[in-house]
Amino acid sequence: MGKVVVVTSGKGGVGKTTSTAALGAAVAKTGKKVALVDFDVGLRNLDLIMGAERRVVFDLVNVIQGTAKLSQALIRDKRLETLYLLPASQTRDKDALTEEGVEEVIGRLRQVFDYVFCDSPAGIERGAQLAMRFADEAVIVTNPEVSSVRDSDRIIGLLDARTMRAEQGEHIAKHVLVTRYDAARAARGEMLSIDDVLEILSVPLIGIIPESQDVLRASNLGAPVTLSEPINAAAKAYLEAARRLEGEDLPVVVPFERKGFLDRLLGRRAA
């Protein structure tokens, strides 16, 4: 039985879709069978990030409504033969997903794949709750910034209350993935530190992804950043996070930036 991992955050634009693609490809690289499921109905983007937008024929809603078979809707990655994508539909009908339908699809994916990554829509409403509903584990994507941390805290509350596992009194493993981390700004005290974020959320850290042009470049090219060559800092951080997700005990090193000469001279700590 495969593991179902929801990639969630509450806040939009923090890097859920980027992280779903990067972590999924990283795990698939090791030979595990991986399915990425886009739950962002109406605003699908995972297909673009994966570079599969022109190959979408059927989607999650088609499968749930019975107009397509699961095997017809799954798109196999051109680069990794163990990586598949189940796109979201572009329908504006927010109720197109039913809980029973999602349960059925996730249940079947779980039988075939080693890992099922669910890319959650933003928010804390129905769509986000359905994406997490049948998850065994959660990756909570957080930017070191007040509104993102607050939303992550609410999502953690939902994970502990509204998931199937939680309702059955089982444990749902949670991991914080800090993304868009800017070491220079953290050093100057302009950004919440990793310690701050972890202390506030009290959920273990699975990785720190630096703010990086390479992430944008990868999405422009339609390839998960973990498949880019040569391996850049963001890709390396995602590859390590994926190893931790698979249970490896790999310490997280906080990216470090020395203060500039002028900063040190003036003892400046800009607000």
Binding site: E190, G267, R269
Partner: peptide
């Protein structure tokens, strides 16, 4: 004069 209070502790 050059030292301004950092904002991260306030956020925290």
């Amino acid at each position: 004069l050059f030292k301004r209070r950092t904002s991260a502790p306030v956020a925290r």
